[in-house]
Design a protein around this nucleic acid. Structure first.
Lengths: 213, 213
DNA sequence: CAAGTATGGAGACGTATGCTATCCATATTG
DNA sequence: CAATATGGATAGCATACGTCTCCATACTTG
């Protein structure tokens, strides 16, 4: 198929597809003449993935490109791909000062948590740094009591990660596994966020005892 | 204190504070003369909250303003404030077409889920629409099997929401409660996302049997 | 096979966002 | 009293994510 059909099959405007091609989010089609190219089902699939990461996952173009590179990297292990994708989606923490020491306190809290849960995670890893940042923010806002349920979050995260990996490990082809892990990573955030809102709405409605929402 | 001290106490540059004042993210100080104003601890507090929502919560200036308005709205119930804050942080879904019908399928799936969990949530609510969007994305990407663990997500979300509300309900002043609910909403997403990455890292490391991370 | 439309490729252009910089008259400070 | 800071307002800047315009070439439709 040519670009027009790729567009109509995915709902993505032609100029936007051209833009993605330029940005390296989509491999170019197979050239049949100097200015003609053929696209296949793989392009449709990839384009849908790109849109999902951009629109649902709210990734930037650059982050999306890095994630795709991680997926496409040949010979990577699942674990390696996940790590690469994680650092792609986790913006590093803008190196702000830490006058109040919340950063160090948070670091300690996270270390204790990891210990308690038996997590062996890289000290300098993107995921860990991100968590430290968030915990520090809670502290700076004087919301230490909310950090009391940190373990609830941890348990929830553990269970979800385990369930997700179990589903993905059950897939036959490796390609599907790699893609699944990354989709679970990127879209999973959005899924959990939406689910949390829904649950909050319900719990808060009950707590307040409001009739018929 | 004057703006300079407000700046040094929060680490936010003076021009940025001025910008926030203009954008209505921060109330202006108490004028002592035509071009002098006094800021207090409330301003420090509010400014920290603003920064946390922008940097950690990744909210836009506009969303931040709406959330603050929800917090400041007089006479709102906790439930009402949560609802207002939720629609502020949940961008509406850009009204794209749904040629493939994934949208309808997702809608049905979410309805069934809500039924199964006993959730009474607004059909047109922002949270629900967001979830439908995410579920539709999974389907469009052919990741239906990952939706098999939707209930795990739901249970996790329920537990977290309940724990959070319990902590907040235990607070004495209403102001603290309102702020807590909103912080739990905004920063909670970031917290859960970071936690998920950490757990994924650990689970994937175990699954792959890698030695010493 | 002629006329009209679509394509690939590349650069210019547009819009939104989140700050920074510059001015300036007035206040404060050393 | 000279140097610095303030508030207020306007202008400028960088980044991000597209969209528009061109153009020579290729399809395709009557």
């Amino acid at each position: 198929m040519r670009i027009g059909e790729l567009s109509s099959r995915t709902g993505v405007p032609v100029p936007t597809i051209k833009y993605y091609l330029r940005e390296g989010l989509l491999p170019s089609g197979e050239r049949t003449s100097p200015n003609q190219a053929q696209y296949g089902d793989g392009h449709v699939r990839r384009l849908k993935l790109v849109r999902a990461m951009l629109e649902v996952g709210k990734l930037s173009i650059a982050a999306t490109r890095e994630v795709l590179n991680a997926i496409d990297a040949p010979g990577g292990t699942l674990h390696g791909t996940l790590g690469a994708a994680q650092s792609a989606v986790t913006a590093e923490p803008s190196a702000g000062g830490d006058e109040d020491g919340a950063r160090q306190e948070a670091d300690r809290l996270v270390a204790v948590l990891a210990e308690r849960r038996g997590w062996r995670v890289k000290p300098g890893g993107a995921a860990r740094q991100a968590l430290i940042q968030v915990v520090a923010a809670y502290q700076r806002l004087g919301q230490e009591d909310l950090l009391g349920i940190l373990d609830e979050y941890a348990v929830a995260a553990e269970r979800l990660a385990a369930a997700e990996i179990a589903v993905i490990a059950g897939r036959s082809e490796l390609d599907g596994q790699v893609e699944g892990v990354v989709i679970g990573l990127v879209l999973g955030d959005a899924l959990m966020a939406a689910m949390r809102r829904l649950a909050q709405e319900d719990v808060s409605r009950r707590a307040v005892g409001e009739r018929a929402n």
